[in-house]
Design a protein around this nucleic acid. Structure first.
Length: 486
DNA sequence: CGAAACTCCTCTATAGGAGTTTCGGTGCGATAGT
């Protein structure tokens, strides 16, 4: 069997060796064990189900959180010569979609979303085919998004049971013990084989830099971005700021900068991401919308202008740096008061007592209720999702309880984040402690507490000269081309 | 919470100050209407 694995690794994917954890995960699912794998960012998680896909006789279903992620993976497999692969989602027009649903048994890999699986027609069809492996990619989304933002993630438990409990593989790069427990609970994975590898990325230095106020923060940001070895990502928690700062950077000599956030057109988002991947952009100013599925080797810094709402997200976001193994740096800018914005968001995103009471009292249709009670899309979905989970007489009580628990949960997560930002002990140890790990790697440029030599991360003098030359060449070329056109 | 956007007001001004309200991340799928 082991021999067989290596043969296929070589034949199908052209590799001679497995990366950390891959062989263990593959062996586990090949033995038919439900498996929860936490593999560090950038270790090639997709191979863990793609290779078994060639050895098992049935079909592999992959539940993925993003359409773009599905499209990428499908394309990748097609480039590798796989024809029996598809993404069943809303990109398809209704005719195509029906065609695929009618012919599901002919595929080897089917990518899809939790929302699509909730569609009864799709589920009925899936029940008729032989599924050898049910994969939940980016499985932390179950815990992070399921309870409010995308409740269909919580349906996966029922869907798995409807599909007769197929062998299941949950994959993620970050999961604390609680998140793992959440994943197991929501997928109903009794008897699960947990393969958990260290989340530590020793080549990423961790720095928290305190700024006195907003304008000081902007000043520091500019300074860092000018000096640091690019490409890099800057995270903000406001869409407006991503655009303002991208413009500010461009006006300050960092020409290849662009914004990216969820409010932009799909085409625009794809374009920016592609330009970044192909080194036509050096700096991306983004909200948390940017990053999942961004497999770029040479990202050398990740700066947080605002802190994320939990350490789990922080680790996901900085984990996009240094995949080439080179020294990279993560800098979090903090100024007093930064923590109030997320707290306020948590308190307002879910429905109020009044909204809950009225929603279950009124007999209007749901869109009328939404406008009457001034409900946001998320509030409406939250109220609707739990409506059928409880008896009418008790629903109000339970929904209030779930809301309070959810707010509390998010506040606790945020508090852990704040505690880490304000701590005066080793940052790496702090993060590893949060993930129930011990620090084992002896890191030279570890964190701002242990000491980091920022010069190691700055653009080398030679690089500056080279890129200036390139810029000149580019400018000349543009001038010449423009001259031709006119 | 704190910043920005909006509304209202002024000795009827087309500017600007005061007061008030809104907004702040994440995305699937279906639908309405070009």
């Amino acid at each position: 069997m082991i021999r067989n694995l290596y043969d296929h690794l070589n034949k199908q994917f052209g590799y001679d060796m497995f990366r950390i954890g891959q062989e263990e995960v593959i062996t586990s699912v090949m033995e038919g064990k439900h498996t929860l794998a936490v593999l560090p960012t950038g270790t090639g998680k997709s191979l863990c189900y793609q290779l078994p896909g060639y050895l098992l006789k049935g079909i592999v279903i992959i539940v993925s959180p993003l359409l773009s992620l599905m499209q990428d993976q499908v394309e990748q497999l097609k480039i590798n010569g796989e024809k029996r692969v598809t993404a069943l989602n809303s990109f398809l027009d209704p005719r195509e979609r029906n065609q695929i649903i009618q012919n599901l048994q002919n595929y080897r890999f089917i990518y899809t979303s939790p929302e699509m699986l909730t569609n009864n027609g799709v589920l009925q069809k899936l029940k008729q085919i032989d599924i050898s492996l049910f994969v939940v990619d980016e499985a932390h989304c179950i815990s992070q998004w399921g309870p409010d933002f995308r409740p269909d993630y919580l349906n996966l438990r029922t869907i798995r049971s409807e599909l007769n409990n197929p062998t299941t593989l949950a994959l993620t790069a970050t999961a604390t013990e609680d998140v793992r427990a959440d994943i197991i609970e929501h997928l109903n994975l009794y008897d699960v084989n947990q393969l958990v590898y260290s989340v530590d990325r020793p080549n990423i230095a961790l720095v928290v830099e305190e700024a006195a106020n907003y304008s000081d923060k902007v000043k520091k940001l500019l300074q860092f971005v000018k000096q640091l070895q690019k490409p890099g990502i800057i995270y903000f928690s406001s869409k407006r700021l991503t655009e303002e700062m991208a413009a500010l950077l461009r006006n300050n000599g960092i020409a290849q900068s662009a914004a990216y956030h969820g409010g932009m057109d799909r085409e625009q988002r794809i374009l920016i991401q592609q330009q970044f991947l192909h080194n036509q952009l050096q700096v991306i100013c983004a909200t948390s919308a940017f990053g999942m599925g961004v497999n770029k080797e040479n990202i050398h810094f990740v700066i947080h202008f605002h802190m994320p709402y939990q350490l789990d997200s922080y680790l996901q976001e900085i984990g996009r740096a240094g995949r080439d193994g080179k020294k990279s740096i993560a800098i979090l800018l903090y100024s007093p008061g930064d923590e109030f914005l997320p707290l306020q968001i948590f308190e307002n995103e879910l429905p109020s007592d009044y909204q809950i009471e009225q929603f279950y009292l009124l007999n209007n249709n749901s869109s009328d209720k939404a406008s009457l009670l001034n409900l946001t899309e998320i509030q409406l979905r939250f109220l609707t999702y739990y409506q059928n989970k409880y008896d009418k007489s008790e629903v109000e009580k339970h929904v209030k309880r779930i809301r309070d628990m959810r707010i509390q949960y998010k506040q606790n997560k945020l508090n852990e984040m704040i505690k880490w930002v304000k701590s005066t002990t080793c940052r790496r140890e702090g993060i590893l402690h949060y993930f129930q790990e011990q620090k084992v790697n002896n890191v030279t440029d570890c964190c701002d507490v242990c000491g980091v030599d920022i010069i190691n991360y700055q653009t080398a003098f030679q690089d500056t000269i080279r890129s200036q030359n390139e810029n000149w060449r580019l400018m000349l070329k543009n001038l010449l081309i423009r001259g031709d056109e006119e």
